[in-house]
Nucleic acid binder design. Structure first.
Lengths: 237, 237
DNA sequence: TGTGTACATTTGGTCAACCAAATTGGTCAA
DNA sequence: TTGACCAATTTGGTTGACCAAATGTACACA
């Protein structure tokens, strides 16, 4: 037990770590050192408990904590996998905080509009050529999917995400990444299907894109305001 | 079991919650409704499991999650107590997250300013008399602490939180609650001490408050812009 | 009456055994 | 060769019992 504990002591701190903290760090290292890539399955709890020479409960507890941070995702009766680390870690945390307070839909929408309005304004000033390319791709994907009559929720979100990415503000990006899915799931669960004309949506997206391309901040803000008019309307009615 | 589950169903969402989420919300409600104040001891895990008619492990898991969020603090072999919730606890949590991904400071500040600007604008329109009272209290506390020469970081944050609360937007409130401590710890860890004249800060806070009281949205926005001028300046220099 | 000590109870932590679902691998019929 | 099906195995989840520390209680002693 002690042998394993000290097998790769890198600093003095580790000497004072509890068993659980030690396991957490071990697994975290496995991930950050790319020995385990996102999507990979972790060894089973039993294997890990044997390998680290600790009880299964301790492994269990450690995994729960890591799952909390968004590094792992455990699938019941199947295994625990490494999830897309990075932003996800922050996301999982914030999402849970939001869930903890069960936000009202109106606040959610209000915040989203505010976020994207500002993001778009910044994007008009900061967008790189690469950003433009990404946005255009998302735009095309959205258009194609929509014109076939299919639902294009994912593609819609992707376009908005690219907008925010162009703002070059990582925090806003994270926040939109959290909030938009919340709104979508709300729409889903409440069976709200917007019967908006597809071409109208495409035109609105295009106008936002054009304004950003032209680095017209005011125009972009106005365009996205228009795009959100229906949502706003639904929300305040 | 079912009886207890539905004992105070307030909306349809709760019907789809898992046992664990249900317990989390129950306990959370106990705290937010002030039936349990910071420092109070929670009933023992066994009592809770009996009361909610679920297994002790489930209670245990729920408590662990809440402890993670900083709402509870469990003392081994002694009991779990309600901790002085929120702010400081969130700090610890975010500190851990930061080890995994550090959002850049500039984005953080930019987002904060955007959030509060909007929140203040809304607050000017929506603030209740109670909101005004809370803000005034926070204002006074900040003033008193500052004029004695002490650091008033907590009080400063409290005032800003009350501002955002007055916007009546729960999501913005959550976001500010996450972002502001992050900025504070950055300042702390980088030993950035603003030598701004205390009276200037107090005056700025007062001006924000006055504008909100007068329901002057534009004025409030302008006032908070002024208040953030130094921060913005530091950030873009 | 106040105080210290010993005992009983209550506490959260740990563990091994068990459960049902998911996966896996092989088998057999088409 | 392919596909469907079944059983054995592996998976995470759950449970109840036990542990040691902390707390509460009662009684003896000063």
């Amino acid at each position: 037990m002690l042998d394993l504990k000290r097998e790769n002591l890198t600093d003095t701190q580790e000497a004072f770590m509890t068993d659980e903290e030690l396991i957490i760090n071990k697994v975290k290292d496995l991930i950050t050192s790319r020995q385990l890539e996102p999507g990979d399955r972790l060894p089973s709890e039993r294997k890990l408990s044997e390998k680290f020479n600790v009880s299964r409960s301790q492994v269990r507890s450690a995994i729960q904590k890591l799952e909390f941070y968004g590094l792992l995702k455990t699938l019941p009766k199947s295994g625990t996998v490494v999830s897309n680390l990075g932003v996800t870690a922050l996301n999982g945390m914030m999402r849970d905080i939001l869930k903890l307070q069960r936000p009202d839909f109106k606040s959610l929408v209000e915040t989203r509009i505010m976020l994207e309005k500002n993001a778009v304004w910044l994007a008009a000033q900061r967008r790189s050529d690469e950003d433009l390319r990404h946005m255009e791709e998302a735009l095309k994907a959205f258009e194609n999917k929509l014109l076939t009559g299919e639902s294009a929720v994912e593609e819609d979100m992707m376009f908005h995400l690219k907008l925010v990415e162009a703002s070059n503000n990582s925090v806003m990006h994270s926040l939109v990444l959290i909030i938009v899915p919340e709104i979508i799931t709300y729409f889903m669960s409440n069976k709200i299907c917007s019967h908006v004309e597809a071409r109208k949506l495409i035109r609105e997206h295009q106008e936002i894109f054009d304004a950003i391309q032209a680095q017209d901040a005011e125009g972009a803000e106005k365009a996205i305001d228009l795009h959100f008019a229906d949502l706003k309307n639904y929300c305040y009615s």
